[in-house]
């Protein structure tokens, strides 16, 4: 396998991606990346189509075309959107509550050693008990409905957010705090004007992880105990043995998870663009 040969669709065959090329390298690189992405996905779809035709059982493995068709169906009937909204709404709600609790708590624990030592052990005890393990108990307390998935998602999002906030607050460079103090500002200002902005990049990373964790908890929670939502839809159609719809929803879950991550990354870059990589002083 020639590691350097490049035979993607965007560049002439035999061209090498070496530095002496005169082409506007950046643009053709992006086009080339896209071409490779498409090539892989097309091959994947072809293999899938072949496999499903070979297996011959549409319940076991429907063709990509079936899945695409059911996608359109579901979009038309409004089920796609309604389930999507239900899940996304829960994600937003659980995330906002998790942030409202975890971020202030994280600040308090990051700044106050004693408080940290009192609360952290309990956090570390609860953290390994995944949100999913709470589902039976949660079902008991909350029953099947909207509240259960939201609570489980809250639990899933809470810990990454809390832990990352604590780490971010602790990692704030002492120099900034010292600089502010020698400029004669009070402690409240130091918190507001120095610690919060300095910790923001780390907190946003935590938010991204929390959203991902919440989204994953959503699937499990809805599978087991919800009357609506994407996880519920996957299970519903499985019981009906309507596999193309099952796959359509699974793809949607994956797609949305990916989109959330991208959006949060962009947000991170937009809000904290000033955070240059370390080592550039």
């Amino acid at each position: 396998m020639k590691a350097n040969a490049f035979n993607g669709k965007g560049m002439p065959a035999g061209a090498r991606s070496d530095r002496s090329a005169v082409w506007p390298l950046l643009l053709s690189r992006k086009v080339a990346d896209l071409a490779i992405y498409l090539r892989t996905m097309i091959i994947f779809l072809l293999v899938w189509q072949g496999a499903s035709l070979w297996i011959g059982n549409p319940i076991l493995l429907p063709t990509p075309i079936d899945v695409a068709r059911s996608f359109v169906e579901l979009a038309g009937s409004g089920e796609l959107v309604s389930n999507m909204l239900a899940s996304v709404w829960r994600l937003l709600l659980s995330f906002v509550i998790a942030a409202a609790v975890a971020i202030p708590l994280g600040f308090a624990m990051g700044l106050n050693r004693i408080l940290f030592e009192m609360i952290d052990p309990t956090v570390e005890l609860l953290r390994p008990i995944s949100g999913i393990a709470w589902i039976p108990l949660g079902l008991f307390i909350l029953g099947i409905g909207d509240a259960l998935p939201t609570a489980i998602m809250f639990y899933g999002a809470f810990f990454p957010l809390l832990i990352n906030t604590i780490t971010a607050v602790r990692a704030v460079d002492r120099s900034y705090v010292n600089a502010a103090r020698t400029l004669g500002v009070g402690e409240a200002t130091v918190l507001r004007q120095v610690i919060v902005p300095a910790a923001l990049p780390g907190i946003l990373v935590g938010a991204r992880l929390a959203a991902g964790a919440g989204w994953m908890s959503m699937v499990a929670a809805e599978l087991i105990g919800a009357p609506s939502g994407l996880g519920f839809a996957v299970e519903w159609y499985r019981e009906l043995l309507m596999t193309p719809k099952v796959l359509a929803f699974i793809v949607l879950i994956g797609l949305m998870g990916y989109l959330f991550d991208r959006v949060l990354r962009a947000l991170q870059r937009g809000m904290t663009g000033w955070a240059e990589p370390r080592g550039v002083s």
């Binding site: 996880g231 879950i253 949305m256």
Partner: peptide, 28 residues
Amino acid sequence: RAFDRALDPLVESFRPIAPIALLPLAIL
């Protein structure tokens, strides 16, 4: 690199799909 470029789209496309979401499929 060629391997990486070829397979990476697949890996990255499936990664957001939570394992649990595939459970109904697995049961099927």
